[in-house]
């Protein structure tokens, strides 16, 4: 009985509330809701290009001492060069998430206008990125993503790069043979995805190809030489090597050269200058090239766009991505990469 009474009271209240929501009342409520949503999504837009106020971009690198990080920085500098009032300050994350978190705190406190970031650890940096965005500082990540939603991610292809390299290697070794992988540091989204793209493509499309081993060389050329030497000792037959970055592919190539194994197909990824030269000399087979200057420049363009806009990442459910064009480089195509575009 009590339940029936309660149901009747509830039904009455619902009818009353529906009546109250009709006509003018409804319009006002909707307008109010829209206004609230707009307030939540908006942030104060900055006058980026007039030159009246200085605009400061912070570039928080994963490790500034690597050529790729330097190329990104130069790309950012090239983009902002025409505007004297726009400056970039580079910070060295020293491959440490803790260092990057500390840098991010200082950068937010100092009120930079935009941040370009490579996350050494996407989860550890998530809170800092959210704080920056909440403070109205747009964050654009470069290759190394963050788990929290932010203004944009500018990245070189990862999964597809692995897939492309798998297809290339398969074609070069005639669809059958034995392959080894030289890994970098595990836990980095980009390189993990690249390896996954490579492995899944081989497993799904090329039953004649066997991945016989994979070992880490920590992204280092000298370590890759040691790892490749171990592979050569351990296996009588190796037809191809896929190294997750060019430095390790170069190391593998030097090891194969020293061992007199010049018929092994060796692929890297990134497209750094030294690798392109080794491809020209026939020491390496190929790489996936990304114009890192262009990538840095794109990140700077987006950072300035976001700083000058009311648009806030809080309306996003997922970080928007800009994917850089991948170029497959082999001995036949390497000459198409101009000297000025080699980093």
């Amino acid at each position: 009985m009590k339940k029936k009474l309660a149901a009747l009271v509830m039904a009455g209240l619902m009818i009353f509330s529906l009546a109250a929501c009709s006509g003018e009342g409804t319009t006002r409520e909707d307008a109010g809701a829209a206004a609230t949503a707009t307030t939540a999504a908006a942030k104060p837009a900055k006058d980026v290009y007039s030159g009246e106020t200085p605009i400061r971009i912070a570039y928080v690198a994963h490790d500034l001492s690597t050529p790729n990080n330097q190329a990104w920085l130069e790309g950012i500098e090239r983009e902002i060069e025409p505007w004297e009032h726009v400056t970039v300050q580079a910070f060295n994350g020293e491959s440490s998430a803790e260092t990057q978190v500390s840098i991010m705190t200082s950068v937010i406190d100092e009120g930079y206008d935009a941040i370009i970031l490579q996350c050494s650890d996407g989860t550890a940096l998530a809170e800092s990125v959210t704080q920056a965005e909440a403070a109205g500082i747009p964050v654009v990540t470069l290759n190394l993503d963050c788990t929290s939603t932010h203004s944009a991610l500018v990245m070189a292809v990862d999964y597809d790069a692995g897939r492309m390299i798998a297809d290339q290697i398969a074609a070069e070794i005639g669809g059958s043979g034995k392959v080894v992988i030289i890994e970098g540091v595990q836990g980095l989204t980009r390189t993990d995805n690249m390896e996954r793209g490579f492995v899944e493509t081989i497993e799904n499309n090329y039953s004649g190809i066997e991945i016989i081993d994979k070992q880490s060389a920590q992204f280092e050329k000298a370590t890759a030489q040691t790892v490749m030497n171990s592979f050569l000792q351990n296996y009588d037959q190796i037809d191809a090597v896929f190294a997750i970055n060019d430095a390790m592919a170069e190391g593998a190539a030097l090891a194969c050269e020293s061992a007199g194994k010049n018929d092994i197909v060796i692929w890297g990824a990134d497209g750094e200058k030294a690798a392109l030269e080794m491809i020209e000399n026939g020491q390496m087979t190929g790489t996936i090239y990304t114009n890192s200057w262009d990538q840095g420049s794109t990140a700077a363009k987006i950072a300035l766009l976001m700083a000058g806009s009311e648009y806030s990442s809080s309306v996003l459910s997922k970080t928007p991505e800009v994917i850089m064009e991948p170029v497959i480089v082999t001995a036949e195509t390497v000459s198409s990469i101009d000297e000025k575009d080699r980093w």
């Binding site: 890994e183 595990q186 081993d213 994979k214 070992q215 880490s216 040691t226 790892v227 171990s230 592979f231 000792q233 351990n234």
Partner: peptide, 15 residues
């Protein structure tokens, strides 16, 4: 040690 880990194909996560 490093050589042994490589030769025995121990996954790099366990090194």
């Amino acid at each position: 040690l490093q050589n042994g880990l490589n030769l025995m194909s121990v996954p790099s996560t366990q090194h």
